[in-house]
Amino acid sequence: MVREAVGGNVLLRSIVALLDCEVICGHEVLDIEVPFCFAADLMSDVLAFSAPDSLLITGLTSVQSVHTAHVADCRGILFVSGKQPSPEALKLARDNSIPLLATAHSMADSCGILLHHGLSPASKA
């Protein structure tokens, strides 16, 4: 069950279970609620079109992905296709308490699974 949180939001912990994620950092905040997801490899797309409190789903592993999540008020980042963040990205995420997850699923599969289980796209914000 992904819709564990009150109000239709999804717990980060549920996303970890659904996508069989590795929790790279942020174990202590897995019980936060995520209302939306937004998927892109272009960070300008995230800055232009995402909604606050979204889960950022991306294949971009550079430090700019974490800066983007930080300035756009994302609640966490999900790296897809087995990708891992750079050391600089991991340090920045830890410094700013941004949880990082990684899954072997592709971006399209990840979005499909999350939407199927009730997470809304940021366009519905």
Binding site: S44, Q64, T68
Partner: peptide
């Protein structure tokens, strides 16, 4: 630049928006 997630032609419009 695009490989780093930028250069989509959204920068200046995004600043104005």
């Amino acid at each position: 630049m695009r490989a780093r997630g930028f250069g989509a032609g959204l920068g200046l419009p995004n600043i104005r928006r």
